[in-house]
C-alpha cells in the first residue's frame, strides 16, 4: 500500500478514541475555565480571564506546584534508584525469587483506601508503629507525623515511593532479563569487577527502560492525587495540597463548587506540564541517535 495513504489508517483509530474521550472533555474544561461556576447550584457565568488572574495571586496554588515539584524530585531521586537496585539484586540467582517479586509488587495492587488506613496507623503520633519503634531507643517518643506542616507531605511521599518501587522494579527486571549474558562473560574475561560490569554494561543497557520509568514517574507525580488527599488533612492547605488535590477540593469537596476556578487551575497545571514535557521531548529527539528510545532524559 502507498505510504501516504497508509499512514492515516495507522493513526485513525487512536485519533478517533482520543479525540472523542479525551480532547473533547479537555476542550470543555478549557472553556469552563473562563466561567465563574459555583455549581451545582447555579449556572456558569462568563468572566473572561478573571479566574486566571485570581490564580496567579493564589498562594495555595503556587505552594501546590512546589509540592508537585518536590514529589517529582523525590520519585526520581529515591524511587528510581531503589527500583533499579532491587531489580539488580533480584537478578542474581536468588532463593525464593517468586516470593520476593510478588511481595514487592503487592503494594501496587493494594487499593489506596487500605494503604491510607494502614499508614495512618503507622504514622499515629504515639501508638503508631513508627513512634513505637523509635520509643524503643528513646522512651516516651511521640511525634505528629501527619500534623507537622513542614514534614507531613514528606512522610506521605515516602508512602508513595514505597508503593511504586515494586512496579518500577518489575519494569527493570524485564529490561535486565533482556541483557545478553555474553556481555557479562566478555567483561569478566576482560577482568572487569562486579561494580564495573554494573556501571558499564547494566546501566547503559537499562537506559531505555530508565527513560520509560522516569517519564511515568514525572507524569505520575504531576498528576498525583490519592494518598495525599486521604492522608494530608491534618495540616493547613498551603502545606498539604498538590495541584490535583487542590483542583478536586475547589470543584467538589464539601460542595465548594468553584468548578470554573478549578478548571482554570487544571489549565495551568496543563501548561506547566507542557513546559516540562516539551523540552524533554525535544531534547531526546535531538539526541535520538544516542538515545534510541527518544522517550525521556
Amino acid at each position: 500500500m502507498n505510504r501516504r495513504l497508509a499512514t492515516p489508517l495507522y493513526l485513525l483509530p487512536a485519533l478517533a478514541v482520543y479525540g472523542l474521550f479525551v480532547l473533547t472533555p479537555i476542550a470543555e474544561s478549557f472553556r469552563l475555565s473562563l466561567f465563574r461556576w459555583p455549581f451545582p447550584s447555579a449556572q456558569p457565568v462568563f468572566c473572561g480571564l478573571r479566574n486566571f488572574a485570581d490564580l496567579l495571586r493564589d498562594a495555595v496554588f503556587w505552594k501546590a506546584c512546589q509540592h508537585n515539584a518536590a514529589l517529582l524530585l523525590m520519585s526520581l531521586a529515591v524511587q528510581l534508584p531503589a527500583a533499579i537496585a532491587l531489580a539488580v539484586l533480584l537478578h542474581y540467582p536468588t532463593r525464593g525469587r517468586t516470593l520476593f517479586r510478588t511481595a514487592f509488587f503487592a503494594p501496587m495492587v493494594m487499593p489506596t483506601a487500605a494503604i491510607a488506613v494502614l499508614w495512618q496507623f503507622i504514622y499515629a503520633p504515639e501508638q503508631g508503629l513508627l513512634s513505637r519503634l523509635i520509643a524503643l531507643v528513646r522512651p516516651g517518643f511521640a511525634y505528629p507525623w501527619l500534623a507537622d506542616p513542614r514534614t507531613t507531605l514528606l512522610w506521605i511521599f515516602v508512602t508513595i515511593c514505597w508503593r511504586y518501587i515494586g512496579f518500577h522494579m518489575v519494569l527493570y527486571m524485564a529490561a535486565l532479563g533482556a541483557i545478553p549474558e555474553e556481555l557479562y562473560e566478555a567483561a569478566r574475561l576482560d577482568g572487569a569487577g562486579e561494580w564495573q560490569a554494573c556501571r558499564y554494561i547494566t546501566l547503559p543497557m537499562l537506559r531505555p527502560m530508565i527513560g520509560i520509568s522516569a517519564t511515568l514517574s514525572i507524569i505520575g507525580s504531576l498528576k498525583y492525587f490519592d494518598l495525599v488527599y486521604l492522608m494530608a488533612g491534618g495540616v493547613p492547605e498551603e502545606s498539604r495540597e498538590l495541584m490535583a488535590t487542590y483542583i478536586y477540593r475547589l470543584a467538589f469537596d464539601e460542595y465548594q463548587g468553584r468548578f470554573g476556578y478549578g478548571s482554570a487551575a487544571a489549565v495551568m497545571l496543563f501548561v506547566i506540564a507542557l513546559l516540562v514535557i516539551v523540552p524533554l521531548q525535544a531534547r531526546s529527539r535531538r539526541r535520538s541517535p544516542d538515545n534510541p528510545t527518544g522517550t525521556a532524559p
Binding site: 473533547t24 472533555p25 474544561s29 507524569i219 483542583i247 468548578f259 497545571l269 496543563f270 506540564a273 507542557l274
Partner: peptide, 15 residues
C-alpha cells in the same frame, strides 16, 4: 497525544 497525560481527571468528569 501527550496532552492527555497532563490533565487532572477530575475536571473532565462533568464533560
Amino acid at each position: 497525544f501527550l496532552l492527555g497525560m497532563m490533565i487532572p481527571v477530575h475536571v473532565t468528569l462533568i464533560p
